[in-house]
Computed example of a mutant assay.
Amino acid sequence: MAERYEIRFSGAGGQGLITAGIILAEAASIVEGKSAVQSQSYGPEARGGASKSEVIISDGPIDYPKATVVDACLAMTQEAADKYANGIKPGGLLLLDSDFVKNEPKGDFKIVKMPIMRTAKEDIGREIVANVVALGAMIALTDVVARESGEKAVLAKVPEAFLELNKKAYNLGFEKVKALIN
């Protein structure tokens, strides 16, 4: 891993992407002992407007808490792709929800497409865990934390009644994206 690794989760407000960012930061910092910061922003409309969560992970101290050149970005909606896929470094990565992002942003980065919301709805039976499916996919694509660290952080964050649901969602996102790239 590079000295500083920046990941952006983006989509619509209410999709749980800020939570996904928090879980990733906790996987890096609490589980693996790395330095990590998480920041977020969203439009004035709490639900439905574009929102983003950024996580910076480093082996050493983080001197600036905002993403500057993003290594990997997730875009769950077309609006998020249009607004937040900028700033991905050359050779970086963009994960798109293939059902909701039809116009791919242009840039010198690799694009991976996966039906994230549909996977949550059809394979898990609950759209509400799409953020955890996406988190599993991003960890599989970036290797920024170990698979087990991500799972441990997910399970530490969700209510006990939803442990199995979220564990299944995380692992499904991880496995499905690994199958896409291999």
Rank of each mutant, 00 (worst) to 15 (best):
K52C: 12
S53H: 04
E54T: 14
I56G: 05
I57K: 13
S58V: 07
S58Q: 04
D59F: 12
D59I: 11
G60N: 07
P61N: 15
I62H: 04
D63P: 00
D63G: 15
Y64L: 11
Y64G: 05
P65K: 02
K66C: 00
A67T: 15
V69F: 10
V69H: 13
D71C: 10
D71Q: 11
D71S: 14
A72P: 10
A72D: 07
C73D: 08
C73V: 15
L74H: 02
M76K: 07
Q78W: 05
E79C: 08
E79V: 13
A80T: 08
A81G: 01
D82F: 06
K83N: 04
Y84T: 14
A85W: 01
A85N: 08
G87Q: 10
G87K: 11
K89I: 12
K89G: 11
G91T: 11
L93E: 04
L93Y: 01
L94Y: 03
L96H: 04
L96A: 06
D97M: 11
S98C: 06
D99C: 08
D99V: 04
D99E: 11
F100N: 15
K102H: 06
N103G: 08
N103H: 09
G107Y: 03
K110Y: 01
K110D: 06
V112S: 02
K113C: 07
K113F: 04
I116H: 07
R118V: 00
T119C: 07
A120R: 12
A120T: 12
A120I: 11
A120D: 05
K121E: 15
K121V: 14
K121M: 15
K121D: 13
E122R: 07
D123V: 00
D123L: 14
I124F: 01
G125P: 10
R126C: 08
R126L: 13
E127S: 13
E127C: 00
I128W: 00
I128H: 01
A130W: 06
N131L: 02
V132D: 05
V132A: 02
V132C: 03
V133Q: 09
V133L: 00
A134R: 08
A134D: 05
L135E: 02
G136H: 02
G136I: 11
G136R: 08
G136Y: 03
A137T: 12
A137K: 09
M138Y: 00
L141I: 11
T142R: 01
T142H: 07
T142G: 05
D143N: 12
D143C: 03
V144C: 10
A146M: 13
A146N: 12
R147V: 00
R147P: 01
E148A: 09
